[in-house]
């Protein structure tokens, strides 16, 4: 990663002129099922700044997807507030585009290109067909799918579908790109390739992304900043820097150290629970 100028990290809380893009403060999110009320996250605070690769990391069921759904506007918090560029989030909109883990997120009745132009035209990014076509082609070539622009999604492989979804998300140039374990359903080789491509794309455009994963390694590679959540109901446990580490550092001492640190934090609770169990 090209981050030579970030050596002063950590001492003073940054240059005062930098405003967070996304400000989540004291957010509690709850689900209502047919019989129960379930608290998924509890009073979570975090701030995402421009060009952050902000990773949400935590054990399964701790409410990562729920937080993302909240930011996307699909769920309203029962307490606390989420602000995007200072405005409260109340409903879904094209300024926060979501990339899902599921392969069925592409509209099956549109070709690869149409999927992107449809998003552009309906999301209000482009007003003319021609313009939308051009933007779509630009991003299709960014994810290296030029040969498949007129193919329907059911004829693509899982990795290709994910690439289309990412291209669609980036083409809309949202204030923040939300990704919920976008690579989790891919095989290891494809996943690694997609991670590299994502970082390359980031080098190109420096978009802001909020990324959910439960792989510690992926978090360290992808993330510039990592938020660690406690087990259900999710609460903020720590926020760590990882901007200095990328693919090329896998296996380095620093990389391993950070991985180890995160590992310890996530499993601290496990140990705690084990210890308290006999007493109860």
């Amino acid at each position: 990663m090209n981050d030579a100028a970030t050596g002063t990290a950590g001492v003073s809380p940054a240059v005062p002129t930098v405003e967070p893009i996304l400000d989540v403060s004291g957010v509690t999110l709850q689900y209502k099922t047919k019989e129960h009320l379930i608290t998924a996250t509890y009073r979570v605070d975090f701030q995402v700044f421009p060009s952050d690769r902000f990773v949400l990391l935590g054990p399964s069921g701790c409410g990562k997807s729920t937080l993302l759904k909240g930011v996307a506007g699909y769920m309203q918090p029962v307490e606390g507030a989420m602000k995007l560029k200072g405005r409260e989030i109340t409903e879904p909109g094209p300024d926060r585009v979501m990339v899902f883990q599921e392969f069925d997120q592409l509209l099956p009745w549109k070709t690869v290109k149409q999927n992107i132009t449809f998003a552009l035209m309906n999301g209000g990014k482009c007003s003319s067909r021609q313009e939308a076509d051009d933007v779509a082609m630009e991003y299709i070539s960014k994810v290296k799918l030029e040969r498949f622009e007129d193919t329907y999604p059911h004829m693509l492989s899982g990795g290709m579908k994910q690439r289309v979804a990412i291209a669609r998300g980036m083409a809309m140039e949202p204030d923040i790109l939300l990704m919920d374990e976008p690579f989790a359903a891919l095989d290891a080789l494809t996943r690694r390739q997609m991670q590299e491509e994502l970082l390359q794309l980031w080098d190109d455009t420096k978009f802001t992304v909020l990324f959910v994963t439960h792989s510690i390694e992926e978090a360290v590679i992808i993330g510039s900043r990592i938020l660690i959540l406690s087990p259900h109901p999710g609460q903020v446990k720590a926020e760590l820097n990882a901007h200095q580490l990328g693919h090329s550092d896998v296996g380095d001492a620093e990389f391993a150290q950070l991985q180890e640190k995160i590992h310890a934090m996530i499993f601290a609770d496990r140990v705690l629970e084990d210890e308290t169990l006999p007493n109860v």
């Binding site: 090209n2 981050d3 970030t6 002063t8 990290a9 950590g10 001492v11 809380p13 940054a14 240059v15 930098v18 509690t28 009320l37 608290t39 509890y42 009073r43 700044f49 421009p50 060009s51 952050d52 420096k206 510039s224 900043r225 406690s230 109901p233 609460q235 903020v236 446990k237 720590a238 926020e239 760590l240 820097n241 901007h243 934090m265």
Partner: peptide, 20 residues
């Protein structure tokens, strides 16, 4: 490019007792 800010860790994370 990146707004680097200090790390922090929430050491005394109590159990979320005051919520259902």
């Amino acid at each position: 490019e990146i707004h680097v800010r200090p790390e922090f860790e929430n050491k005394n994370l109590g159990k979320a007792t005051d919520v259902d």
